[in-house]
Design a protein around this nucleic acid. Structure first.
Lengths: 339, 339
DNA sequence: TTGTACGCGTTATCAA
DNA sequence: TTGATAACGCGTACAA
């Protein structure tokens, strides 16, 4: 099995390699005769151009880099990350791009910035998590690398970004509970350093004030996005003998932990306590009871992030955008009226 | 910001580019003086070699291809896929490799084989799912591409593979239930076409016969790996008025669906029915009740798959292996003695 | 120990 | 419409 290359194909087709290259790249100015000869030998020998050589010659790799921090396994396997990446992959596949992941140890930041991204093997970057941005953004800027943020981040409005309307999500979740008659609504939220979290909180507060309700600050519990936090938070609330008839968990994982703590204590859901989550992970329809939650289009976020970056790379649309996709409420069985 | 390349660095260091190349690749036969001059200009200008050019020159890409079929989003985001990939990524990162995903539409197989993998951009392949193997294996074989299977597959014993001991997993799960006194154990399993599933079933049967029990064939329900199946299967069993005191679900997702159906009907778990799952997904500690299940080292499977392939590529260890990692039982709260 | 020259497989320029 | 020929940036015999 001899190696095929453009020269061999050219010789076998009785043309020069320039012609083969033109045929390969759909260039005009190729005679029909030549084209069909080339096409048939390509087909006959199953020739495919060497993509590495193409990349070198064109200075384009058709690879999108994804830069994300390496969270613990359980945080990266709750479905959110997968869904986003599936959106990325699908869009990339359609457009002829590949995806390359680079992880940053957020705890261990002594990696040289230079080693974080491979300029020659990547056409642009999707910055997955707010934590990594400060690390890397100067380098990327200096090298004029196309970049899309996966989170809203008003500090860097000069870069395109995709997110959902987190404020609206928080507002919808809280309003739903208020409409059901709840007045004592505890919020279990996480990582207030991040704009996403603050926006959800803002929605929570706004829904209260729009309905003439005052937020009970002692019902605000801060933690991180995990089942453990939800579980512990509920136990803490109960230990402190806090009165609440509803729980707004700012992620479905938090809600799962809360649900377990409630169920274990024999609390009737939603009879005694209503619970609303955030994300609408694929498994959230199968918690007990099935979780009322804010659906966010995670997959679509991935698609859109890839789309924006590719549009930029292909010079189809190079203007900066700050997309905020719409979340919506999904009512299942974990919320009900105050009795 | 002018473009840096090996020639410029050479000129600035007052050596030829051969010397720079040798320094870059840790070759011997470079004088200390030259080496330090080169190193300092590299550092000074922040030079990094162009990886595309390196790939072209060495005919190595340091990219592992992962070929997997494109299942529905919810199936690919239950945590299993993420965990496996995290193992892959971590190992690859350590060894200086990247990962490239290629998806196959298992339903829509008219893609030309030739388009499925990019030989020039990939050093070897991990075949993720049994469904894609037949499609592609001839091509890979003909081109002598290094390949590792992510499933045990005795039809292709000429290729290395990684899996868990699925037989043992089925055996452990069933034995646990039998030890608790259960005699009517329903099994909810999926995709019997795949060796993995048949092995788990074999363990289920063997545990019965080792304990002098006969399998009630009417308690064997066949479906697919999903919460929906688990949910429907339980309802079906109840509608048919089947007697069973325990459920062996061959995946945690199936178990979650089963749990919901049981909970909704007010069945006490494990008082009336015990449930054991398979996989030990990160969320399985937070179902209600927390799920007793067979833990399989998914992340480690990813690590090992990458390791085997990289060992082959680096010629460190080229012999064919068929690894079967050990699963083990994790007892939580969804199983208990027969009352 | 160093440097020259060529090869890797493409694309792109420019003359024919 | 075609075909030399020169990049692209690096690795590596081979000669010095």
């Amino acid at each position: 099995m001899e190696k095929l290359n453009i020269d061999k194909i050219a010789r076998l087709s009785l043309v020069s390699k320039s012609v083969v290259s033109r045929v390969l790249n759909d260039h005009p100015n190729v005679s029909d005769a030549a084209r069909s000869r080339v096409m048939s030998t390509i087909k006959k020998y199953g020739y495919k151009p060497n993509s590495t050589a193409q990349n070198l010659a064109t200075n384009r790799s058709h690879v999108l880099g994804v830069l994300t921090d390496r969270r613990p396994n359980n945080e990266m396997s709750n479905g959110y990350w997968s869904l986003f990446n599936l959106g990325l992959f699908d869009k990339c596949r359609k457009e002829g791009y590949f995806t390359r992941f680079t992880f940053v140890d957020a705890g261990n930041l002594n990696q040289s910035n230079h080693t974080l991204f491979d300029e020659s093997g990547t056409d642009g970057f999707i910055l997955h998590t707010p934590e990594v941005i400060n690390l890397i953004i100067d380098d990327l800027k200096r090298k004029e690398f196309p970049v899309v943020f996966k989170h809203q981040n008003s500090e860097y409005s000069e870069y395109s970004s995709v997110d959902i309307n987190n404020y609206l999500g928080g507002y919808l979740a809280t309003s739903h509970l208020i409409e059901l008659g709840h007045k004592k609504i505890s919020i279990l939220w996480a990582v207030p350093e991040v704009e996403e979290a603050r926006e959800r909180m803002r929605g929570y507060r706004q829904a209260h004030s729009d309905n003439g309700l005052k937020v009970d600050e002692s019902l605000i519990i801060t933690g991180h996005y995990s089942q453990e936090f939800g579980y512990e938070a509920v136990r803490k609330l109960n230990k402190l003998n806090k009165q609440f008839s509803a729980l707004f968990c700012t992620s479905d994982t938090i809600a799962m932990g809360a649900l377990l703590a409630l169920n274990e204590e024999g609390v009737d859901i939603p009879g005694e306590v209503s619970v609303v989550g955030f994300d609408d992970l694929p498994s959230s329809g199968f918690t007990f009871p099935p979780l009322t939650t804010i659906h966010q289009p995670i997959y679509e976020k991935g698609v859109r992030a890839a789309e924006i970056l590719i549009n930029q790379l292909e010079k189809r649309d190079t203007k900066i955008v700050h997309d905020l996709l719409e979340p919506h409420l999904v009512i299942r069985k974990s919320t009900g009226p105050v009795l």
